[in-house]
């Protein structure tokens, strides 16, 4: 598998405080990678190290196969980023901000390209307004536009939905889905679990500077077994010798059944033969919230 970002035993200390400890990540190319963790877990510190804003105390990392120490200059042209709150020059308009950021990066943006970026982020109507008049949501979108300058293959978005209302969050989610073109990797840090569960293809959960869980969302959130919606959960539970349905929180009318691809068809036949109607069958899932709290609780182990 191709990885857009790798870190090996990456660590960062500030004095005696260990912010990131022996972090080893593998971010698949083309993925939307959710980087989760409570406040102070080391998410922003990791992003700052990968972007060259701060130097690691030890360990190595690569972005697009380039070493963050030795090939910083090449990495600069391959990444776009929002680190924490997007900051702009308040006295400039959105257009001028994009031009200023592009020129500082050594790029010259054509007017059509500026219009395209502002169009993608829905800021065309406000392009002539000074950024000091922008709402937080508009600044976040302008941050995405700035990160897209030069069409970089890797985007680092550090909590881009922070402080947004539900409508703003939905717009940001749609925006991220639209900019995830073929091959682009989005490294998305957040502590809003619902957002991550909806958007991301892969995740890592960080706690106290250490990775606790890492992998594709589909495999981390799926379990062996199915959830079945049927006409009588009590009868079905008794028939299959399962605990009372009330003790299995799959929702009213649903029953959780353990099993594999080999045993589940037989279970369903048993139910149907007993006259119990089966309306819906779905793979049993754990929620990201449950996984997050399980992996960030004291004494939780590492899951890869």
């Amino acid at each position: 598998m191709d990885y857009a970002i790798t870190t090996d035993a990456l660590s960062k200390s500030f004095g005696r405080t260990l912010a990131v400890h022996q972090l080893s990540l593998r971010v698949p190319a083309g993925s939307i990678f959710g980087f989760l963790g409570p406040n102070g877990a080391g998410k922003t510190t990791t992003i700052r190290m990968l972007l060259g804003l701060i130097r690691q105390t030890s360990g190595t990392a690569t972005v697009c196969g380039r070493d963050i120490d030795q090939q910083r200059k090449e990495i600069a042209s391959l990444v776009g980023a929002i680190v924490e709150v997007p900051c702009f020059y308040p006295y400039l308009t959105a257009e001028e901000n994009l031009q200023a950021i592009a020129l500082t990066a050594g790029l010259k943006l054509a007017g059509a390209e500026v219009s395209r970026l502002l169009g993608i982020t829905g800021l065309t109507q406000s392009k002539a307004r000074r950024v000091r008049e922008y709402s937080l949501g508009m600044k976040q979108r302008l941050g995405i536009a700035a990160a897209l300058i030069g069409d970089p293959p890797v985007l680092f978005l550090d909590e881009p939905t922070n402080g947004l209302d539900p409508e703003g969050s939905r717009e940001m989610r749609d925006l991220l889905a639209s900019i995830k073109s073929a091959g682009r990797t989005i490294f998305f840090s957040s502590h809003l679990l619902g957002e991550v569960e909806r958007i991301c293809t892969d995740i890592a959960i960080l706690q106290s500077g250490e990775v606790r869980v890492q992998g594709p969302v589909t495999s981390l959130l799926s379990e062996q077994g199915v959830e079945i919606r049927l006409s009588s959960t009590k009868r079905a539970a008794a028939l299959l010798a399962l605990p009372a349905p009330e003790s299995m929180p799959a929702g009213p009318g649903w029953l959780r059944v353990d099993g594999t691809d080999e045993t589940i068809p037989a279970t369903l036949r048993t139910l149907l033969n007993a006259g119990i109607d089966v309306f819906e069958v779905r793979a049993k899932r754990v929620t990201l919230e449950a996984l997050f709290f399980a992996s960030t609780s004291p004494g939780a182990g590492v899951q890869q």
Partner: peptide, 8 residues
């Protein structure tokens, strides 16, 4: 932090 990641 907006401009330095893009600067070699």
């Amino acid at each position: 932090k907006m401009i330095l990641p893009r600067v070699g």
